[in-house]
């Protein structure tokens, strides 16, 4: 599974990293760092929770 991060929309709530630790890397300001995230199969459920936690809808699950 791949997740696309819309950095222009990210406002640094950091909820993704809070509910799904280790999946969403933040920069030193606390905003999403990568543009794209490759999610290991075992982490998919947790990653989806992180995506759903974003108040700005800045994270999107890419369908293969």
């Amino acid at each position: 599974m791949k997740i696309k991060a819309n950095k222009a929309k990210c406002s640094g709530h950091a909820r993704c990293a809070a509910v799904a630790p280790g999946i969403f890397e933040l920069d030193s300001d606390g905003y999403i760092a990568p543009d794209e995230i490759d999610v290991a199969p075992d982490d998919e459920a947790l990653a989806r929770r992180g995506v759903r936690a974003c108040p700005e809808r800045a994270l999107e699950i890419m369908t293969d």
Binding site: A14, A17, S28
Partner: peptide, 8 residues
Amino acid sequence: LNPFFSPK
């Protein structure tokens, strides 16, 4: 200012 108030 963000670095002073970040989760880190």
